[in-house]
Design a protein around this nucleic acid. Structure first.
Length: 506
RNA sequence: GGCCCGUUAGCUCAACAGGUAGAGCAGCGGACUCUUAAUCCGCGGGUUGAAGGUUCGAGUCCUUCACGGGUCACCA
């Protein structure tokens, strides 16, 4: 950089073309700071505590204890409020978790420095150095001796009392949401703790964390429409993965008996309060176990998470109280549909009547088979009625092309879906390991695709070949991290648990 | 993609039946050395999401569009 060309000649131009009076005033303040030669955007800061750490480490000390021993701090934070009273000023600085009051007195810092504070605005990031005391009302406060810029804010912050309410702005400018709304920051801290707890849970049990392709030649492992892209050098179409499943099972073939992956999946489908085109999935596979053991492991995992996040197994979700207390309800898929669909038994048992009924529930997904009809009814009528964690077991084999069939009822899959608060949170099964049967299932799916079913699985012979080398009995499960976070952080929209949810560009 | 709702000052919100666009916070000026949604006095701030239309007159009614929320469809 050319220093000669630097500060003074720099254009005072913000991204927004039209500036409000407040923004013009802030630019003017910045110009004055330049004239005074003050560093507004320093390279580093000598910090002793964060705001959170000050509050955490000193809140237990009373007035006398604080004044008896001199506790000095150098703490960074964003100015959130200013209360000026002539020759003294109170203001709060904040990090993403806590606020800390600062007391600035002219007789402490000198008239010149005190007047300098007029060039500081709400929103500026500053460093305050001073000693801790308690005010008359008992609030832990820094008596400032020095203060300096860490960054100037050229735009006014949203209103201090109501925060940032505009939902669209909260998603588009998430940083403002995080600055203004502690609940939102808290949600993302919960999310982070969930992910690290998941890693700890699986690491402690000897699982290996792996990464498998996000760009795939044949998008498999789930029934969904993929995003398509193109590799220039190779001249081939590639697809963003809809699931990592088939690669993870290849690893189990390779002898990695316990593997998991936490990463993004991409599905080219609609966007709503439970769906974002990119979402985070945990998938894990363990050799030698079946889906019954997976249910036990799942209960164990979720109880662990609830304890990590809430300290107990019950917690609120909207109007409901969710309980992870074991054992969880296990309900056969067919029985769930029978119970909750409100359908008379005679019609339920008559495939034609059932298909007809299911057809009335959906516009462009007309079921053609008994199994698909059950699936539609489950999605439309049943799922939303299940609030407490419930394993819906043994759905039709036909809609489970990668799962083993039940040994005694071949029309059913050795599979479960976990429903909580009306949402599908996990999906798991005893993996289909027989290469001949897998190939046949793929071909059945291909036949369905021929008849126009876009949701059918593509044939992946490379995967079948892997099975031909021998996949031991394996249980595999996928858990939707975004939805799990919704449940544990008490959020009703998936956009509230994804930092930057997909929005149309403005 | 369909339907319903929303979009007004930097932010949070008002504006009756179509009749001069307001308030609080924030900002600016002033008073104030324990305030905390500080207080008190004064001041500035708007192409009412965009474009058309109806009307003497549109934030308000109509049409189209954009973005968002809800819901249905698809999906997890």
């Amino acid at each position: 950089m050319n220093e000669q060309h630097g500060k003074k000649d720099r254009q005072l131009k913000l991204v927004q073309e039209e500036l409000s009076d407040q923004e013009l005033i802030r630019l003017e303040k910045w110009r004055k700071l330049q004239e005074k030669g003050l560093e507004v955007f320093p390279h580093r800061a000598e910090v002793s505590h964060s705001v959170f750490e000050v509050v955490r480490d000193f809140s237990h000390l009373n007035k006398e204890e604080l004044e008896g021993k001199e506790y000095r701090v150098k703490v960074p934070g964003r100015i959130m409020t200013i209360r000026k009273m002539g020759r003294a000023t109170f203001f709060h600085i904040a990090d993403c978790r806590r606020r800390l009051q600062v007391y600035l007195r002219e007789d402490q810092v000198g008239p010149e420095n005190y007047d300098l504070f007029d060039l500081f605005d709400i929103g500026d990031v500053i460093l305050v150095e001073g000693r801790l005391f308690r005010t008359r009302t008992g609030e832990l406060t820094v008596l400032a001796e020095k203060f300096s810029f860490l960054a100037k804010s050229f735009h006014p912050l949203p209103e201090k009392w109501h925060g940032l309410q505009d939902v669209e702005l909260r998603y588009r400018k998430r940083y403002l949401d995080l600055i203004m709304n502690p609940d939102s920051s808290e949600t993302f801290m919960v999310r982070s703790r969930i992910v690290s707890s998941l890693r700890k849970f699986f690491d402690d049990r000897g699982f290996l964390e792996v990464e498998t392709p996000m760009m795939q030649v044949i998008p498999g492992g789930a029934l969904a429409r993929p995003f398509k892209t193109f590799h220039n050098a190779l001249g081939i179409d590639l697809y963003l993965r809809i699931a990592p499943e088939l690669y993870l099972k290849r690893l189990v073939v390779g002898g990695l008996e316990k593997v998991y992956e936490i990463n993004r999946n991409f599905r080219n489908e609609g966007v709503d309060s439970q769906h974002n085109p990119e979402f985070t999935m945990l998938e894990f596979y363990q050799a030698y176990i079946d889906y019954n053991q997976l249910m036990d492991l799942t209960e164990e995992l979720f109880v662990y998470l609830a304890r990590e996040i809430h300290g107990k197994e019950e917690f609120p979700y909207g109007e409901e109280t969710i309980s992870f207390r074991r054992p969880w309800k296990r309900l056969k898929f067919q029985d769930a549909v029978r119970q909750y669909s409100g359908l008379a038994p005679a019609r339920f048992d008559d495939p034609k009547a059932l298909i007809e009924f299911a057809s009335t529930l959906t516009a462009d997904r007309k079921p053609t088979t008994y199994a698909k009809a059950l699936d539609v009814i489950f999605d439309k009528l049943v799922k939303e009625k299940i609030v407490q964690p419930t394993f819906i077991i043994n759905p039709p084999r036909e809609i489970s092309p990668l799962a083993k069939a039940d040994p005694t009822r071949p029309e059913e899959a050795s599979r479960f879906e976990l429903i909580i608060a009306g949402m599908e949170i996990a999906n798991a099964f005893s993996e289909l390991t027989d290469p001949f049967e897998q190939r046949q299932r793929f071909e059945e799916q291909a036949a369905m695709r021929q008849t126009g079913d876009e949701e059918s699985h593509l044939v992946d012979l490379d995967y079948v070949e892997a099975l031909e080398y021998g996949l031991p009995p394996t249980g595999g499960e996928g858990i939707g991290i975004d939805r799990l976070t919704m449940i544990l952080a008490n959020r009703k929209s998936i956009r509230e648990v994804i930092l930057f949810p997909l929005l149309k560009p403005r």
